[in-house]
Design a protein around this nucleic acid. Structure first.
Length: 553
RNA sequence: UGGGUUAUGGUGUAACGGUAGCACUACAGAUUUUGGUUCUGUCUGUCUAGGUUCGAAUCCUAGUAACCCAACCA
C-alpha cells in the first residue's frame, strides 16, 4: 500500500507522459485559443485549466492565442474580458498572440498550396458549393473552376486580396477529395472575401482565412506540441494533418476531449447571448450566468473553480456534471477562508425583558476553521432581531429553535427563553418577549443549561440595513439542452430574490470587494459591484448545507 | 440508410487480462455555541448477447444506444 495515493492520469496526460518518456519532446507547448466574440464561461474554464495545467505540471508553456479570423463578430471588448478572466483564474500565458498576426504568413501558405496545384479559386455561390458538396451518403462533384490553371488561380487570388471582388463572389478552396466520407475533406474553403473592418488589422485585408486554414497553421507557427480541442473537431483532424503535410510545416498534433456540461444551465454562446439580449438576466456578468465574470461577481473563488475542473476530470464521453459538485467545491474553499458575520434576512423583534444593562460587548470568532482569524466585538442589548423562521408558535417534534417556553442560545451571547408572543390584529407575530439567563454568557457559562439550538441575531439599535441578493439556479430542469422544446421555457422565474432590507451587524460596514463572508446559518456572501457608500449589496454565492430544511421537505 | 466518437452506481471519473476503486449525492450515527464544519458507517455500477481464457470492465464477434459531420462560424 502506497503512503500517498497517486492520482491517476487522464488520457491526455498519458499521451504527454509517453511523448516525454520517448523523447519526442523535452517540453510541451499548449495554447488556449478563444475567439473574441463572447465572454468566457465554465466550459472554457475546463479548457483553460487543462491547457495551462498541463504545462504547469510537465514543463513548457501555454500561449493565449485569439482566433480572430472573422472580423464581423469579433471585438476588442471581448479580448479584454478574456484576458481578465484567464488571469483571474490564476494562469499566466507565455505569449499573447493573435491569428491575425499571421495573416501575411497564412497568405503565403495559401500561395504555396496553389502553386502545388492543391488549391483553386471557385466562383460558385455558397448555395452551389453546398449543393455540389453532396451529402454524407452521396459523394460530391467538382465544378469547372477546379480545372483552372495554377497561373489563373494565382492571379485570381492576388486580385481577391487586392479587393477586386465583392463579398461572396469567390473563395479559395483546397483541392482534396470530393468523394471523401469526411465532409470536411470535400474541397474545403480556405479563404473567403469579407470587406470588413478587423479589430486589429483594420482595413488591411478583405480576405480572411477560415478556421481550418488558420488554427492548425497558427499551432505550427507557435510550435504547439499538443493542440487540445473539443470532440466536435475530430473530423477536422484529418484536414489539420493534411495541411501540415502539404505545407510541410511543424507537425503539431490535435487531441480532442469532451466538453463538460453542467446541470441546470446552458453553455452555448448563442443561448447565453439570448439570455442577455432578451433580458432574462442583467448582463454577461449577472451572477446567475455560467460565465467566468458572473461567477467572479457571485463570489466563487478561482481556487474552487480550479478544484472543480480537476475533480470532474478529462475524458471523451458525453457528460452532464452535477452543479452540486461545483457548489461543494466552493463551500469547501469558502469554509476555510470566509469571515463569519451575522445578518438577519427576515427580522423578528425580540425584547429581553429582564435585561436592564445599557448593553455589553460580546466576542465572536471570525472563523472557527482558522485559529489565526481572531474575533470581533459585537454589542449585545435589550432589543434584538432574530430570523423570523427561527421561531414557531406550534413547533414540530425536533424543532431546536425558539418557541413559547423553549430556550435557545444566541450565538456568542446568552441563552434566552421565549415567554410571550405579541401579535397584531391580523394575528401576525410581531414581537417576542423573552428573558435571558445571566449565568449563561458565552465563554463563562455556569448555568448548566444545555440547549440544542443556537441562533444568529443582530442588535436592533446598532444593526445596519443592507440589500441581499439570493440566487437560485437559472433553469428548472437538470438537462436543459436535452429538455423537450425551447430552452427558454425552462427558465426559473424565481432565480433571483432581492431582500431590500436585511439587518446586518455593523462590522459589515468595513466590507471590501475581495472579502468573503459566511453569514451564519445563511450561506456564503460577497459584496456586489453595485454597492456604493452607505448602500451595501451582498450576493449569495451559495447556501450552507441545510439538513434541517431538507428533512422538512 | 456514409463516416467518425463514446458506453462503468443517481452524477463525474479510475482500474491498461488478476479483489470494480475514488469523489459528489443519498441515507444512518458521533461531535458541535452555525441543524455549518469534522469524523464513522451504509446503499447503489461494468449497454446487450455470444466467444477466447484458469481468470474479462479490459481481448474477439455480432448487436443496441447516444453524440458529432452536409456554415464563405469557430
Amino acid at each position: 500500500m502506497r503512503m500517498s495515493e497517486e492520482k491517476s492520469l487522464n488520457f491526455i496526460e498519458e499521451i504527454v507522459e509517453q511523448d516525454l518518456a520517448s523523447g519526442k519532446y523535452k517540453n510541451i507547448i499548449t495554447r488556449f485559443p478563444p475567439e473574441p466574440n463572447g465572454y468566457l464561461h465554465m466550459g472554457h474554464a475546463t479548457s483553460i485549466c487543462l491547457n495551462f495545467g498541463l504545462t504547469k505540471k510537465y514543463g513548457g508553456y501555454t500561449n493565449l492565442r485569439f482566433d480572430d479570423t472573422n472580423p464581423v463578430t469579433e471585438e476588442t471588448e471581448y479580448v479584454e474580458s478574456i484576458k481578465e478572466d484567464v488571469k483571474w483564474l490564476g494562469f499566466e500565458w507565455k505569449h499573447e498572440l493573435y491569428a491575425s498576426d499571421y495573416f501575411e504568413q497564412l497568405y503565403a501558405f495559401a500561395v504555396k498550396l496553389i502553386k502545388k496545384g492543391l488549391a483553386y479559386v471557385d466562383d460558385s455561390t455558397s448555395e452551389e458549393i453546398a449543393e455540389q458538396k453532396g451529402t454524407p451518403t452521396q459523394p460530391g462533384r467538382r465544378n469547372q473552376y477546379a480545372e483552372r490553371s495554377i497561373d489563373t488561380n494565382l492571379e485570381l487570388f492576388v486580385q481577391m486580396r487586392e479587393g477586386k471582388y465583392a463579398d461572396g463572389s469567390k473563395v479559395l478552396r483546397a483541392k482534396i477529395d470530393m468523394a471523401s466520407s469526411n465532409m470536411l475533406m470535400r474541397d474545403p474553403i480556405l479563404y473567403r472575401i469579407k470587406h470588413a473592418h478587423h479589430h486589429r488589422t483594420g482595413d488591411n485585408w478583405c480576405i480572411y482565412p477560415m478556421y481550418d486554414f488558420a488554427h492548425g497553421q497558427s499551432d505550427s507557427i507557435e510550435n504547439i506540441t499538443h493542440s487540445i480541442c473539443t470532440l466536435e473537431f475530430i473530423p477536422h483532424r484529418e484536414l489539420y494533418n493534411w495541411l501540415i503535410k502539404e505545407l510541410d510545416i511543424y507537425p503539431s498534433h490535435q487531441y480532442e476531449f469532451a466538453r463538460r456540461n453542467l446541470t441546470y444551465t446552458v453553455m452555448s454562446k448563442r443561448k447565453l447571448l439570448q439570455l442577455v439580449n432578451e433580458g432574462f438576466v442583467d448582463g454577461w456578468d449577472d451572477p446567475r450566468m455560467p460565465t467566468i465574470s458572473a461567477m467572479r461577481r457571485r463570489g466563487f473563488t478561482p481556487a474552487s473553480i480550479r478544484e472543480f475542473c480537476d475533480k470532474i476530470g478529462v475524458a471523451k464521453r458525453e457528460n452532464l456534471v452535477d452543479v452540486g459538485l461545483l457548489e461543494f467545491c466552493v463551500r469547501e474553499d469558502l469554509n476555510k477562508i470566509a469571515l463569519r458575520r451575522m445578518v438577519v434576512l427576515d427580522p423578528l423583534k425580540i425584547v429581553i425583558t429582564n435585561y436592564d444593562k445599557e448593553g455589553e460587548v460580546v466576542l465572536s470568532e471570525n472563523n472557527p476553521e482558522d485559529a489565526n482569524s481572531g474575533s470581533r466585538e459585537i454589542l449585545f442589548g435589550k432589543e434584538l432581531f432574530i430570523e423570523r423562521e427561527d421561531f414557531m408558535e406550534n413547533p414540530p417534534k425536533k424543532f431546536f429553535r425558539l418557541a413559547p417556553g423553549q430556550m435557545v442560545r444566541l450565538k456568542s451571547a446568552y441563552i434566552i427563553k421565549c415567554d410571550e408572543v405579541v401579535k397584531d390584529e391580523q394575528d401576525n407575530v410581531i414581537e417576542l418577549k423573552c428573558t435571558y439567563i445571566p449565568e449563561s454568557k458565552s465563554g463563562s457559562d455556569t448555568s448548566g443549561i444545555h440547549v440544542k439550538g443556537t441562533l444568529h441575531w443582530v442588535n436592533a439599535t446598532t444593526a445596519i440595513p443592507v440589500q441581499i441578493n439570493l440566487y437560485d439556479r437559472l433553469f428548472t430542469v437538470e438537462d436543459v439542452d436535452g429538455a423537450e422544446g425551447e430552452f427558454k421555457d425552462y427558465i426559473n422565474k424565481n432565480s433571483l430574490q432581492v431582500i431590500a432590507n436585511a439587518y446586518a451587524e455593523p462590522d459589515l460596514r468595513n466590507a471590501n470587494m475581495q472579502d468573503r463572508f459566511q453569514f451564519l446559518r445563511k450561506g456564503y456572501f460577497c459584496l456586489d459591484k453595485n454597492s456604493a457608500g452607505e448602500k451595501l449589496i451582498f450576493n449569495r454565492t451559495v447556501t450552507l448545507k441545510d439538513t434541517w430544511a431538507k428533512a422538512n421537505k
